[in-house]
Computed example of a mutant assay.
Amino acid sequence: MAETKTRRRGAELEQAILDAAWAELNEVGYTRFTIEAVAARAETSKPVIYRRWPNRAELVLAAWEHSAPIPPRELPDTGSLRADLVYVFTRIADRANSIMGEVIAGVMGETFRHPEVIEALRAQLTRSSELTDTMNTIVRHAIDRGELAPVRLPLRVARLPLDLVRNELMLCGEAVPDEMITELVDEIYLPLLRGLPPA
């Protein structure tokens, strides 16, 4: 009868599962991550989880997308394009440093047993709609301040901060240091933005 009192459905249940999965992932890492542990943490059952996510890799990717976005509403207008970019790159690195490398490596390993997982990973790495919104906001502010000529931000350029940070993380295998963030901004991303063709 206790189950009836705590039964959740729809978005509420999904959020509880994704929150539990993210907490479990941060606590034990990808290698020791299990659907059973997530079910216990979320106070639900394994079949309920498997109806939504057919394997742990897809659940992990969903939890990552749910719990580690960069919400545009948290973006401060610092008054400087460079400072805005350093802020966003730092946010990405902070969220990526602890877990992203292990998640990507673990999910890639799952593709041998579940080939469909690679499509979920590809979608996860290319979607990044909130990051795209954030970068468009930053560029719009810079144009309004006269720091950039009016330009259209291509999708690949909008997603590039995540790609750059992820690449450094995969190469270094450890936290991306602050000096690396400033190099990515000053040597790659700012020159790229300034070299985009006019809108």
Rank of each mutant, 00 (worst) to 15 (best):
A83K: 14
S129W: 05
R166C: 05
I118G: 11
A96M: 12
V38L: 07
V139I: 09
D178K: 13
F33T: 02
G101N: 10
I118H: 05
R95N: 04
E65N: 11
A57V: 04
G109M: 10
F112N: 05
M108V: 15
W22E: 06
T132P: 00
L61N: 08
V165W: 04
P191W: 05
L160N: 00
A175V: 10
A2R: 13
H141V: 00
M1V: 10
T111A: 13
R82S: 09
E43C: 04
E174S: 12
R122L: 12
L25F: 14
A142F: 06
L148G: 12
E174W: 01
M108C: 05
N26Y: 03
P76D: 08
H141G: 02
M180L: 04
C172L: 11
A83R: 12
V151Q: 03
M180Q: 10
D19Q: 14
D94W: 01
R113E: 12
L125Q: 14
L193I: 03
E183F: 04
G29V: 09
D163I: 11
I118M: 15
M180E: 09
H66E: 02
R194M: 06
E24W: 01
I143M: 13
T44S: 07
W64A: 11
K5S: 12
K46S: 12
E110T: 05
T134F: 02
T34D: 03
P72C: 03
I143P: 08
A83W: 00
G79H: 08
D178I: 04
E3K: 15
V176G: 02
R82M: 06
P54N: 12
Y87M: 01
E179P: 00
Y87C: 00
Y30W: 15
A39E: 08
L85S: 05
R7V: 12
V185D: 10
M1S: 15
A2Q: 11
L160E: 02
A57S: 14
W22K: 01
D163F: 15
R140N: 08
I92L: 14
T34M: 01
A20R: 08
R152H: 08
A20I: 07
S80M: 02
